[in-house]
């Protein structure tokens, strides 16, 4: 295989990969009046979940439903709707599930509090352990003290021998 052939092959495959990445940008082209609108569109498309594909945002997904939702988001942005209004619009139709940031309510409270609880429990455990070790080392029983003296005496002797 000539090196030129390999280079061409590589270029073609990289190029086709890039085409794939822009799959939905090809047949859908949204024109915005301001850069702020475009930013708003990109933010929302990255925050709304495609209910059909479930683990993809509507920016990620090429499902027909995601296309429809992008189209609707685009229309509402052009009408001057705010982020909150557009997210609410989608929530009324598809439930809280459609937004990648879950709201704080009864069923999601555990999601928000569990990490905090884990940190607090962990910190308490560390604190408790450290305190326990300190208090334990502070008090030596007479036998322990005698053993320690013995050990010190032994090492002292050993050191003197080495000199």
């Amino acid at each position: 295989m000539s090196s030129r052939f390999v280079t061409t092959l590589l270029a073609v495959s990289i190029f086709s990969f890039m085409l794939g990445m822009n799959a939905w940008a090809d047949n859908e082209f949204y024109e915005f009046e301001t850069a702020a609108q475009e930013r708003q569109f990109n933010t929302l498309a990255g925050e709304l979940r495609c209910p059909k594909c479930q683990n993809q945002t509507i920016a990620d997904s090429d499902a027909p439903l995601a296309q429809d939702m992008r189209e609707r988001v685009y229309q509402m942005i052009m009408e001057g709707k705010s982020n909150a209004e557009i997210i609410d619009f989608m929530k009324v139709r598809y439930g809280d599930f459609v937004h990648y940031r879950p709201p704080i309510n009864k069923s999601t409270l555990i999601l928000w509090l569990a990490p905090l609880a884990v940190i607090i429990i962990g910190a308490l455990a560390v604190w408790f352990n450290v305190r326990h070790q300190r208090s334990a080392s502070a008090e030596l029983t007479p036998e322990e003290e005698a053993r320690m003296d013995e050990m010190f005496a032994k090492t002292d002797k050993a050191e003197e021998r080495d000199k």
Binding site: P51, K52, L65, M69, R72, R93, Y94, G95
Partner: peptide, 13 residues
């Protein structure tokens, strides 16, 4: 044809 009412109904399939 465009899925207009379906979107309003929250249809996803």
């Amino acid at each position: 044809f465009t899925g207009l009412l379906a979107l309003d109904l929250g249809v996803y399939g």
